[in-house]
């Protein structure tokens, strides 16, 4: 085939969306503005889920009871992301982590920072599964998940 037959068309699709958060996410984010991390407790299975849900996905019952959980927890797992990808606004390298906050029964996904991330080998020495981490708050709150700036190792 000639080069002309290999011709490609470049395209980019941008379309706007407006997604309702619903009352449970709204209240969760409003509480983040006040530096409180809230979960919801299921009456049936007694699990506390963070982020909170309007219903327990296992029991399929309304979750009505709000509970404040600890701002500290244990690292269940983490990844050192050193790969840029389209539409990703976080600057690499960064650590995404799953954290079991004290008083909750699910893994909360956020970032670990507040340590030197430039040297990967040092990061591996510094962050271990089971380590305790604590929430660090953004100074300017926008009522979203990044009102928690990141989690930092305790000690």
């Amino acid at each position: 085939m000639s080069k002309e037959e290999h011709r490609i068309v470049k395209g980019q699709v941008m379309v706007p969306y407006e997604l309702a958060l619903g009352r449970t996410w709204c209240h969760f984010f409003d509480c983040l503005k006040e530096e409180k991390i809230m979960g919801k407790k299921c009456r049936k299975c007694s699990r506390v889920l963070v982020p909170p849900r309007s219903f327990c996905p296992r029991c399929f019952e309304d979750m009505e009871e709000w509970v404040e959980v600890s701002q500290e927890g244990v690292v269940e797992t983490w990844v050192y992301v050193n790969m840029p990808f389209f539409a990703q606004e976080l600057k690499i390298p960064f650590i995404s982590a799953q954290i079991r906050l004290d008083g909750s029964d699910s893994g909360f996904i956020h970032q670990i920072a507040g340590i030197d991330l430039s040297d990967f080998d040092k990061v591996r020495e510094r962050v271990k599964l089971g380590d305790r981490v604590r929430a660090v708050w953004s100074t300017e709150k926008k009522g979203n998940i990044l009102d928690i700036a990141y989690f930092e190792p305790v000690k």
Partner: peptide
Amino acid sequence: SFYGDPFYLRPVGLNESAVAAMQMRQ
């Protein structure tokens, strides 16, 4: 990354590779 919802999983940087890596570490 667009599997993730835009108010929780996407802003904290998840995609299939990131979750796979978390799974691998465990």
